[in-house]
Amino acid sequence: MAKKPKLTQRQKRQVAANRNRRLQDKQESPESNSPVADEASLLSGQVIGRFGKHADVEDADGVVARCHIRRTIDSVVCGDKVFFSKGADSESGVSGVIEIVEDRHSLLSRPDFYDGVKPIASNIDQIIIVSAVVPSLSLNIIDRYLVACEDIGIQPIIVLNKVELLSAEEREDAIAQLATYTSLGYEVLFTSCKNSEGLASLNACLKDKISIFVGQSGVGKSSLINQILPNADELVGDVSDNSGLGQHTTTAAKLLHLPAGGDLIDSPGIREFNLWHIPVERVTSGFIEFRDYLGGCKFRDCKHLNDPGCLLREAVERGEISAARYASYHKILATLEEQRPSYTNPY
Results as ranks from 00 to 15, higher is better:
E99Y: 07
V188I: 08
S222P: 11
Q9S: 12
S217K: 05
R340P: 05
C149V: 11
M1N: 02
S201I: 00
G246W: 05
Q339E: 15
N203I: 01
A37F: 07
A232Q: 09
G262S: 02
H304Q: 01
S240R: 08
P268T: 02
D25I: 06
V283H: 04
L333A: 06
F273C: 06
S328D: 05
M1I: 10
P30M: 08
G116K: 08
A232R: 09
V219D: 02
T284D: 14
C149F: 11
D59E: 08
S109D: 02
A40N: 07
E314N: 13
S285Q: 11
S34Y: 15
L336F: 03
Q126V: 10
V82L: 01
V133L: 06
I265D: 00
I152N: 04
G296Q: 12
E172K: 11
K207M: 05
L107E: 13
R144L: 03
S90H: 09
V47Y: 02
Q216F: 09
L160N: 05
S243Y: 08
S285G: 03
S44D: 09
T284W: 07
I152R: 10
N231W: 04
I225G: 01
A200D: 10
S131L: 04
D266Q: 06
I48W: 02
E164G: 04
L206V: 02
N306P: 00
V280E: 14
G309E: 00
I120Y: 13
V130C: 05
F51G: 01
P341F: 12
R50H: 10
D307C: 07
T180V: 15
G62Q: 08
Q9R: 13
I228N: 00
Y343A: 14
P230Q: 04
S136A: 13
A55T: 02
G295D: 11
I332V: 14
E197G: 01
D112Q: 01
P135V: 07
D151M: 07
S90Q: 15
R171W: 12
I225E: 04
V133W: 01
N20M: 14
L108F: 14
V94S: 01
L189I: 02
E170S: 12
A17K: 14
A168T: 11
R318A: 12
L165C: 08
V94R: 02
C302Y: 10
A253M: 04
N231R: 08
V316Y: 12
R13W: 00
A16N: 05
G96R: 04
S285F: 09
E91W: 12
L178T: 10
F51I: 11
E314F: 13
V101R: 03
I73P: 00
V57N: 05
V77D: 06
V15R: 04
C302G: 07
Q46M: 14
H304D: 06
S109P: 00
S136G: 00
L23G: 13
G52T: 03
L202R: 08
S85Q: 15
R171E: 12
R13V: 12
Y329S: 10
S92V: 03
N123H: 08
A324S: 13
R313I: 10
C149L: 05
S192F: 07
